[in-house]
């Protein structure tokens, strides 16, 4: 590909954590690199850049995706929520709070992705039991190996959110 052909950009317009964002991006730019490099939203991490680890998980229209596998251009006209967008008026999301209480994080590098994934896992109705949670949270690796605590945190948050909605 010649330099001139590659220099074309695409105008995109999306919502990130409730805020409208307009940008002109290279077609090859991933949503993860867009968030991290262009918007300086560094909560989503790059653990592998090929969809194996889940540290880059964000919500697109409420669905959890590996943002390293999504092009920024294809997120145009969609709603993106990152871990930075979960707390409301400074108040932690129940999943965030449960992760602290259950000690479901150690180094913290996978935590943003785990939390976003947990929010979606609960929303999908996949938090009915510890076994179900363990299965549906297995796309997010944790090398500190906090798995029992992560499952506990997701269950804790799910029960609290159920009670709040009852």
């Amino acid at each position: 590909m010649s330099a001139s052909a590659r220099s074309q950009t695409i105008d995109i317009s999306l919502t990130v954590n409730g805020r409208p964002v307009q940008a002109s991006v290279e077609p090859r730019l991933s949503l993860l690199d867009f968030l991290r490099e262009e918007l300086d939203l560094t909560g989503a991490k790059k653990g592998c850049n090929r969809g194996e680890c889940g540290t880059c998980t964000v919500l697109v229209d409420g669905r959890r995706v590996n943002s390293c596998l999504v092009l920024a251009a294809s997120a145009s006209n969609h709603e993106v929520v990152t871990v930075e967008g979960l707390a409301k008026d400074g108040e932690l999301h129940p999943v965030q709070q449960a992760f602290i209480e259950a000690d479901a994080l150690q180094c913290g590098f996978c935590t943003s992705g785990q939390i976003i994934s947990a929010v979606a896992c609960i929303e999908e109705g996949h938090a009915g039991s510890t076994e179900e949670i363990r299965e549906w949270m297995s796309g997010n690796l944790c090398r500190c190996s906090c798995y029992p605590q992560i499952a506990e945190a997701v269950e804790m948050a799910a029960r609290r959110m159920e009670a709040d909605n009852a």
Partner: peptide, 8 residues
């Protein structure tokens, strides 16, 4: 914990 769960 708080800064890590907020992604900060």
């Amino acid at each position: 914990g708080p800064s890590k769960v907020r992604g900060e």
